[in-house]
Write a protein that binds this DNA or RNA. Structure first.
Lengths: 142, 142
DNA sequence: TATAATAGTTGATATAAGCAACTATTAAGG
DNA sequence: CCTTAATAGTTGCTTATATCAACTATTATA
């Protein structure tokens, strides 16, 4: 197993994602904010605790971001009926449109990045990505 | 071309790299500092401008980090003989050992991450990574 | 030689993040 | 039940990280 190859890939892909995020989130919201919006957009009704675990954010920090996004009317909270400690998170209409905007910018950049890639290669690319996901899987959770 | 697959991979791999960095750099130095140390370790004699371009850091911010690392005796600077504006960057012995330490921690985590992967799969993994690098290439520079 | 461009530094400031103490609520053990 | 422990989230305080713009020194260009 050649670890060095993997590390090189990590450095390489870290740069791609870095550039990616730089452009994708050249919007009104920071990287963490955008990740939160995306995550709630994809998992409506999720809880803060989930975001803390999944995005590895400090719960205090997250709490503040969520308050800010609530004030901005990007999202709203609904207190759980069975357990009033828990609040479910949802995007507002405005939040949805920001979510779409983020998706739009991201897709646009991806299209730009991949515009010269042949049909053949793009199939190969997705195959490779799927392969990595399958092999590494979810072990990294631990 | 299914952009959504790629975006999913990006989210997936962003998490892996995030966790990765979190652990890898649970050392004395921050993520940016570690990236700088790594980069100088791999490209001894490189210039600040290169790091600014390559790592997309603010030149003022970078300047401060470099000063700090110089004070810590992690690196040293050599003024270019032909153009005294330019300073070449090198790791000191201490810097080298930190570089090795970063590599060590990173490798250790990678080994942990991949410990249950078969010989077959690890070959597949590296093939997939190589494939991605080849297909996407260096276009993202632009 | 005057002017523009480049490399890097510095000061001031904003943003992001982390820690620990706190409230409110729910779960669990005797 | 009732006390104690655990959980979800909030808040105050502090530090780390990053950005911007003005600045010096040096080199390239017209």
């Amino acid at each position: 197993m050649n670890i060095e190859n993997i590390r090189e890939f990590n450095r390489y892909y870290a740069r791609i994602l870095g550039l990616f995020n730089q452009r994708a989130y050249g919007l009104k919201y920071s990287f963490s904010e955008a990740r939160i919006i995306e995550e709630i957009g994809m998992k409506p009704g999720c809880h803060s605790q989930y975001l803390v675990d999944y995005l590895k954010l400090d719960k205090g920090y997250l709490s503040r971001i969520i308050s800010k996004l609530e004030q901005d009317e990007v999202l709203y909270r609904e207190t759980n009926k069975c357990d009033s400690r828990i609040k479910s998170l949802y995007l507002t209409e405005k939040g949805e449109s920001i979510f779409n905007e983020i998706n739009g910018v991201t897709n646009k950049y991806l299209n730009h990045l991949l515009k010269d890639i042949s049909e053949q290669d793009s199939k190969e690319l997705i195959k490779a990505m799927t392969s990595i996901k399958t092999i590494i899987g979810d072990q990294y959770e631990k």
